[in-house]
């Protein structure tokens, strides 16, 4: 759903629910499936990767510790922690869990040098999956996404066409979550639709 209690997803203006109803039937044959996956709570987390107290504190609240290996993701039970930089992570949670998560992190990490910001509205997530999904990304992203270099559980920030993207590979099909900034979402969406057309595209609901 692109709208929820007065809240609009980044792509609410495109009528994607209706598009999904029309095209999901052919999703089995399509080389690529694309859909908006809105309403994911997101926290920008900063902290010292060498502080055991910070790492275990976060883990005790979220169930996952911030990964210290670059370009990796820790995830467990709907909570994921994506490495963005040596002292920077993006935490994703089920919708509406962010206020409590923030409060508990601030309580648990009190006294440590850390920061957590709610950025749930700042980005939306585009789900891109299917046997040709990698080739669609290769049209606009210079990362080496070959299975020898990149795979499930890996994330990376880079450019997709002319916008910034945070890429998270979910499985080997491959399926990806693409985090794009809200104001760039329509551009990214239109670009992906254009790039995927060659391979057969199905719009899917979340």
């Amino acid at each position: 759903m692109a709208e929820q209690h007065g809240r609009q997803s980044a792509l609410a203006g495109l009528g994607l629910d209706a598009q999904a109803r029309i095209s999901t039937r052919g999703a089995g044959e399509a080389g690529v499936r694309l859909g908006e996956r809105p309403w994911r709570a997101q926290l920008a987390l900063r902290g010292d990767p060498e502080s055991e107290a910070f790492l275990t504190g976060v883990e005790s609240v979220l169930g996952v510790a911030p990964p210290t290996a670059p370009l990796t993701v820790s995830s467990r039970r709907g909570v994921a922690c994506l490495w963005l930089g040596p002292d920077e992570w993006l935490v994703t949670l089920p919708d509406r869990r962010e206020p409590r998560a923030i409060a508990r992190l601030e309580e648990r990490l009190a006294g440590l040098h850390f920061a957590v910001n709610d950025v749930s509205h700042a980005r939306t997530v585009l789900g891109l999956a299917g046997p040709r999904a990698r080739e669609v990304l290769m049209k606009g992203c210079a990362l080496d996404l070959h299975p020898r270099s990149f795979g499930p559980g890996r994330c990376a920030q880079s450019s997709l066409a002319r916008c910034h993207v945070l890429l998270h590979q979910l499985d080997a099909e491959p399926a990806y979550d693409l985090y794009v900034h809200r104001s760039f979402a329509e551009y990214a969406w239109r670009w992906l639709c254009d790039a995927a057309a060659e391979h057969g595209l199905a719009i899917v609901a979340d």
Binding site: R162, A188, W191, D194, A195
Partner: peptide
């Protein structure tokens, strides 16, 4: 130029109130 032409020539950023 590739697909950086027409509507995709450059990102158009819009605010949540754009519509």
């Amino acid at each position: 130029a590739g697909r950086d032409v027409g509507a995709l020539a450059d990102p158009v950023r819009t605010t949540p109130m754009h519509r």
